[in-house]
């Protein structure tokens, strides 16, 4: 879709071209949020998100659902180049109103659809000593949650251990995650998304490949 068709002449948004957001914003987002809360409270446990919302390419339904549930004008968003298309920009602007930022460091949320080429984890906001909550959360859309190499997780929310198999991550990923976890309470939190599923990986979790 060309720029001109999604943005009209005055720079506003042509809503006719937009894909719909959540059918029931109040109750759908509540459902989705509870799914996210469960995913983060039980790291490594795949949670199927309700609400079959079809956002613009290349977003999976789960990625779209998380974006629609968590983003608004208070959350600067960084998106990777594959996702950074006029329809997606228009979609996020209309449904979420979130500002898009150029530099990953400035973002409260990072949206990654091409994990192999994503920025290193340290290039996102890590939080400050006195305000570790000022770090970024990453929505990391992966091609599969079951077909990647097995990684064992330990930490809060996990009774013994949990195993995840996200596919399509860059070579450096789990080494970066080790560094991320080592600087706890600073560091980023991750939601892996694929299809309609989400897996939470908070910074408190240690991973062994």
């Amino acid at each position: 879709m060309a720029l001109a068709t999604s943005l009209n002449a005055s720079g506003g948004i042509d809503t006719a071209e937009l894909r719909p957001g959540l059918a029931d914003p109040v109750h759908d987002s509540q459902h989705i949020f509870r799914g996210l809360l469960t995913a983060l409270a039980h790291p490594g446990r795949p949670v199927t998100l309700p609400g079959d919302v079809a956002g613009p390419e290349p977003l999976d339904p789960a990625t779209t659902a998380v974006a629609l549930t968590l983003l608004d004008y208070d959350t600067p968003l960084w998106i990777d180049w594959i996702a950074d298309t006029p329809p997606l920009r228009a979609y996020l602007k209309f449904h979420c109103g979130c500002p898009l930022v150029e530099r990953s460091q400035d973002a409260a949320f990072g949206l990654v659809t091409d994990p192999e080429n994503m920025p290193r984890l340290a290039l996102f906001a890590q939080g400050r000593d006195q305000y570790p909550d000022s770090s970024a959360s990453l929505l990391l859309q992966v091609p599969s949650l079951e077909e990647g190499p097995a990684v064992t997780l330990k930490g809060p929310g996990i009774r013994e251990t949990a195993t995840i198999r996200p596919a399509g991550l860059p070579d450096w990923f789990w080494n970066d995650w080790r560094l991320n976890a080592a600087q706890f309470p600073l560091g980023v939190d991750i939601f892996f998304t694929c299809g309609r599923s989400v897996v939470g990986l908070p910074r408190s979790i240690l991973a062994e490949g």
Binding site: S29, Q30, F33, L36, L37, L40, A41, T69, L70, D72, D74, T75, P132, D133, S137, P156, G157, F184, P185, D189, P202, R203, S204
Partner: peptide, 17 residues
Amino acid sequence: KRMIRRCLLKAVAVPGY
């Protein structure tokens, strides 16, 4: 709600903070 929900996720990610 969205603002509080984001804070809840941070709170879960940093237990006790």
